[in-house]
Design a protein around this nucleic acid. Structure first.
Length: 309
DNA sequence: CGGATTTGACCTGCGC
DNA sequence: GCGCAGGTCAAATCCG
């Protein structure tokens, strides 16, 4: 069983179009899971990532840390010890990474959105009615990232309702399924704790919000408005082609006391690939530290290379 | 009492 | 075709 899963992982990676471009040294440097190499290279903005085609959804289903050696990594370094180092580090960008995925339909999000609506309606109707067999369920673009957190469900500003929980194979931790509570918003997210590194939480967003973020945590918990965290909400906002309101809102992340400031970053250069949720410490000191360690959240290349293609 | 969560059952897709 | 695993539903339950 386990071997099977590993084989599958390897195959997924091997078949992915971008895996070929991933430098071996980078393959698992994130310590979490593979991300499109473009992120690390800084050659593409995040939206560009969404345009990446041929991303096999299955690839992003496999968000587990490298249980199996990456085909591109040297056999000897099947389990880079640096990952644990990274995780234990006070603040490092590598302890968090992000990935985006898109189905083949991600190319035309416009038409897709319409299709999704129809599908949603169909979905509501169907329920106990079996779906037509030849009608393959079309998956929405997904966007996954990993945070280091003690809490599984991160408050990203949107309101979610849990609608399911499943045990995950080869993982002691269950996977939780959430749906945005806003009517007509079909965004879902899955949250699961990494079996490889229980301190990390894998959150996968699916779809895009069709509404503004309902919660304004400004001032909550005494967090200065400028000290906002680039969050899941932000991630999902950036992940998907969003309406204008997304640009008007500051991405924030209200998770207990954690706060990180991304405001001074050029949004066009923001890449949520390095979201990092650190241990929550309500102390202002940690806030300051987080703030000050913003650089740590992003690889130096991110700052040095805002270059566009 | 209303909304959120839990949880077992059911459906679907996929690999063998 | 069968079995497995992921994903979803919805009744029951919990909680503020």
């Amino acid at each position: 069983m386990e071997e099977k899963a590993q084989v599958k992982t390897e195959n997924s990676m091997a078949n992915s179009t971008f895996s070929d471009q991933i430098p071996a040294s980078f393959a698992f440097s994130s310590s979490i899971f593979d991300m499109p190499c473009e992120v690390e290279k800084g050659s593409l903005g995040f939206m560009d990532l969404l345009g990446i085609q041929d991303y096999s959804p299955s690839l992003f289903d496999v968000l587990q840390p490298p249980l199996a050696p990456h085909p591109l990594t040297s056999p000897a370094s099947s389990a880079p010890p640096e990952s644990s180092e990274v995780v234990n580090a006070p603040a490092t960008p590598n302890s968090s990474s992000i990935s985006s995925s898109s189905t083949e339909a991600a190319n035309d999000d416009q038409t897709k959105a319409a299709e999704e609506e129809e599908q949603d309606q169909e979905k509501n109707k169907k329920q106990l009615k079996p779906k037509k067999k030849n009608q393959k369920r079309q998956r929405e673009p997904r966007f996954a990232f990993i945070t280091k957190s003690e809490v599984d469900h991160l408050d990203d500003g949107y309101r979610w309702r849990k609608y399911g929980q499943k045990a995950v194979k080869n993982s002691p931790f269950p996977r939780s399924y959430y749906r945005c509570t806003t009517a007509a918003c079909g965004v879902k997210k899955r949250v699961e704790r990494s079996s490889d590194d229980p301190t990390t939480v894998v959150t996968t967003y699916e779809g895009q919000h069709s509404h503004p973020c309902p919660v304004m945590p400004r001032g909550s918990l005494g967090i200065p408005p400028e000290a906002v965290t680039f969050s899941a909400a932000a991630a999902s906002s950036f992940a998907m082609p969003q309406p204008q309101y997304q640009q008007q809102q500051q991405p924030y992340f209200n998770n207990s006391s954690l706060s990180l400031n991304f405001n001074h970053m050029n949004s066009s250069s923001i890449n949520p690939a390095f979201l990092h949720e650190r241990r929550l410490r309500p102390s202002p000191a940690s806030l300051l530290r987080d703030h000050g360690l913003l650089e740590d959240l992003l690889p130096s290349q991110m700052f040095k290379e805002p270059k566009e293609e």
